[in-house]
Simulated scan of single mutants.
Amino acid sequence: MAVKFIKQEDIFTQKPTLMMYSYLMSFLVLIQLICDVVALLTINISSIHLSASGVIFPIAFVLVGIIANIYGAERAKSVAIAMTMAQFIFCITVFIFASVKTNNTFNDNGVSQNFSAYFIKYWSVTSAGILDTFIPLWICSVLTSKCKKLFVCKTSKNAGVFYNFPIIGYFLSIFIPLCLSQLSLVLITYTINFGLGVGVSLSDLFNIITSTYIYKLCIGLLIALFLTRPLTKLCTYFDKIDTYDYGVSYNIFPKKGNTGVNVYVNKICQN
């Protein structure tokens, strides 16, 4: 099958609708808040103990990767900022109430005590939460954007490495960002919470990081396998956008107009 290139001179920026983008951002903020609520819960599968938030949060990496692929790294970074702000507001709200001494008149099975004991360590919890939310998701967005340009781009001037093998390029643009961004997540989270906070030994810290990383990565890849393709097509269709981040800055700070090039219309015209 012959590869159809998009001529570089035909590329122009079209203002997208961003309807699906808004829905995804709202859903990801909800995912962040759910993970904060279930931060103290564990799921037991046979003899394996998994963090409830650790099972849920890989969804965020998949969706941020999809957003970076379709809408560009800058808009994906905006989603990461929104999630980080939600994390900060949640932590400071619970901290305020955890600091207030109250007398419970009903049995809550120790939930209030656990939350108070956890969130009273406000600065360590908040710093870990902000760092392990924003930085890994920002890394995921940057890597996804770069992998898309490197592997799957089909413009005549900037052909991707695997433009003749789109399945390979598609897989690598998902696999590499997930692997490296989730690795950064567990390194940041467990180094702060267990290494600096609890003070576990280096061997125990290594075991915690390794086991958690493996199951997070497996969950993330499983979700990505079934979700990425249909959701990408859905968002591209409704929002009329397919972004390549040419000439953009990957700076960690937001930058107005740093939204890449939309080639959606040109691709439709070429088919």
Rank of each mutant, 00 (worst) to 15 (best):
Y246I: 00
L234N: 11
T105P: 00
T42D: 00
I56A: 06
G197S: 11
F175G: 01
T17G: 05
P230V: 05
K240A: 05
L18D: 12
F27I: 15
N164E: 14
K267S: 08
A68L: 12
G129Y: 01
N262E: 10
K256S: 14
V79E: 07
S201Y: 12
F119A: 11
V186H: 02
V38C: 01
A73W: 00
K256W: 13
L202C: 07
T228N: 10
L30A: 13
I43M: 00
T189Y: 04
V198A: 13
K146L: 06
K240Y: 01
S181W: 09
N266I: 11
T155M: 03
Q14E: 14
F88W: 10
L150C: 10
V263W: 10
I188R: 03
A98S: 15
I66D: 11
T191A: 03
V79L: 08
N158F: 07
F88I: 13
I59F: 14
P136R: 03
P254C: 07
I214V: 14
K157S: 03
L221I: 07
D10M: 08
K216Q: 04
S249F: 05
G72A: 04
I6T: 03
I208T: 04
A128W: 01
F134E: 14
S145D: 06
V3W: 10
F162H: 05
L187T: 01
L150K: 13
L41K: 02
I56R: 04
S112R: 11
T236D: 06
V263E: 09
C35I: 08
S184P: 07
L131G: 09
I92M: 12
A60G: 09
F106G: 06
T102V: 11
F95V: 13
L172E: 04
F95E: 08
I209Y: 01
I168D: 02
F226I: 14
I66G: 09
T102A: 07
S99Y: 14
L143C: 02
T84D: 08
I214S: 02
C147E: 04
F162C: 08
T144H: 02
C91V: 15
S22Y: 09
G65I: 11
L217H: 01
F97T: 15
N271G: 14
P58N: 06
N271K: 14
K216F: 02
K267A: 04
C218N: 12
K154E: 12
N207S: 15
V248C: 02
T133A: 07
V142R: 04
W138Y: 15
L28S: 14
S26A: 15
W138Q: 11
E9H: 06
S78H: 13
